[in-house]
Design a protein around this nucleic acid. Structure first.
Lengths: 314, 314
DNA sequence: TATCCTTACGGAATTCGTAAGCATG
DNA sequence: CATGCTTACGAATTCCGTAAGGATA
């Protein structure tokens, strides 16, 4: 039994049981993978994979149990590396953040800048993706901390905590008829083509639900992943934009655009921060969490990471 | 990084940082141990041990963190073996039980016999010891399930569950003056020399406390680890025995001895079953637990093993 | 001086790659 | 017949033991 075998089995599952792919991903030879897995199976006296002839078909019943343990082991091995980093290069290391465009562009710059000020030797790596990819990156140990409004709470391998609350806002060119209204209604909005986020991103779900409840089917002129694209097309007069309020609180302000809160229509959204269950959080990771929201104290995180639930209210 | 290094570090800590002892315990050479540990420290970039010259003195701060992860990893490696056993030799394997004399002699025979009837291929190994040793055996993975009335709940590395409740009884030769009393008092007991368990065993604590509260200092004629020894000396007229009630409910009965419940004096005791936190419990282990007490259902155990607390009431 | 950790070194076992074999779809 | 797992084999590496070195108490 050795760590290589564990890594191979785990990666094989991630690669849909394709050992050739697995070998490429791990920069080693395919027969090596094959042999190691066979060896582990022999040692445990149990088949981990069901084979049809020479092809891996699926994971066996005991294989599932084995994977659970392997998962834990690999997690702790990763933690060991982090522990090493934490203590050897004091206050240095790499912090990988997985997040969506909106967070990366409008919310994270502040906290990241503060972190770099306090820990100049920490290198920050931003991985951008759709919310589902953010979750994936956490699960695959590509990123250590994730930030998104959607999808994170759905995985029970992840610990998620509420980070901040925000509402959607309407954005239109200055002088647009809707700009005159303080509290636009759903009907008024639906009278114009809309420019907004793609279905899986940044609270889009709630918008769809609100229109549906009102039996309105607004015309969607354009769907984008990010607020910048949306604003660009709003400027072009393509329609009325709906974005996260954070996207509008820019420095400097944008005088050619007018915006109005839409919380009364779509309620409020909660952006969540997520960690992989069981992860060891280095000092600067804890510090970063506290920068994201002052309520995410080291003490709270410790409790959350130690506990069983997957979702912690403050 | 490899599993050997982890095992070495863990064992070194268990052996008070004596690498020579460690090597002996693991049946390998002492330089091998030394090298492996140095190697791991190098790889992590962190000292695990504080050295004075060439002698290991204590565990460093990061070393403590490392040990935590190592502990988890070794636990899961043990679980992998159990998983292998569970699924390969269906319904076969080895169940190691750590317990005290009283349980082994008077309580366990029933459950063990039933287990062997239901799982004939399971080999049962009984490890006998003082309560503190029972805990130690669980922590060191010598035994998988532990049973005792004392000491178990004190370790938060152990999950303990109440198994059954019992009271102390007085045992005297038939015809002894005390045999005539239905409910002897502390004073009446203290009038005779007592023969009972050693201080750390089988609820002895409660007996001492009761006498102390009554400001009585009975003469202790003999202290033994097990009820059989106590009964033997009671027969010899050495004094009045105090044993667990289970010791007297024998088949066949012992007509030369008389016994009376003492629950009104010493309260009741709870014998607990314990597992190492995070252990994987095979089917027959779950079945055995249910034989110990019908309330220890697989569902309950699963909840208890997954949870965070260390002590589960039913 | 006795204990005990580290370094040095060499033979044995393991590892890991390439090449070939063979089953599936 | 293209993909993809397993087997075969050999060179390079790692492993692990004994022996020697050096530090502490």
């Amino acid at each position: 039994m050795n760590l290589h075998q564990f890594r191979f089995v785990q990666e094989a599952v991630r690669r849909q049981l394709n050992l050739t792919e697995t070998a490429k991903a791990l920069h080693t030879s395919q027969p090596g993978i094959s042999k190691a897995i066979l060896e582990l199976e022999g040692e445990l006296g149990v088949d981990i994979f069901v084979r049809h002839g020479k092809r891996l078909k699926r994971v066996t019943e005991p294989g599932l149990q084995v994977l659970k343990s392997v998962e834990v082991i690999m997690r702790e091995v990763a933690n060991l590396k982090r522990i090493g980093e934490e203590f050897s290069k004091q206050d240095a290391g790499t912090l990988s953040i997985a997040t969506t465009h909106t967070q990366a562009r409008y919310f994270l710059p502040g906290p990241v800048a503060q972190l770099r000020k306090r820990y100049p030797k920490v290198q920050v790596v931003l991985h951008q993706g759709m919310p589902e990819q953010v979750a994936r990156m956490l699960l695959d140990d590509v990123a250590e901390i994730g930030l998104a409004t959607e999808a994170l709470a759905a995985h029970d391998e992840l610990i998620t905590l509420p980070c901040y609350e925000w509402q959607h806002v309407m954005v239109v060119p200055a002088g647009h008829p809707l700009a005159a209204l303080e509290r636009p209604t759903l009907e008024q909005l639906a009278a114009f083509p809309l420019v907004m986020y793609q279905p899986t991103v940044t609270g889009r779900t709630r918008i769809d639900q609100a229109f549906e409840r009102a039996h309105l089917r607004p015309l969607v002129a354009l769907e984008a992943i990010d607020s910048d694209v949306i604003k660009t097309y709003v400027r072009l007069g393509l329609g009325v934009g709906i974005v996260a309020e954070g996207s509008m609180r820019t420095e400097p302000a944008e005088p050619d655009l007018a915006w109005r809160p839409l919380g009364h229509l779509f309620g409020s959204n909660v952006t969540r921060v997520a960690f992989k269950r069981g992860a060891y959080l280095r000092q600067f990771v804890l510090a970063f969490a506290e920068l994201l929201s002052p309520r995410l104290t080291p003490a709270l995180l410790e409790r959350a990471m130690a506990g069983q639930g997957s979702d912690y209210e403050l």
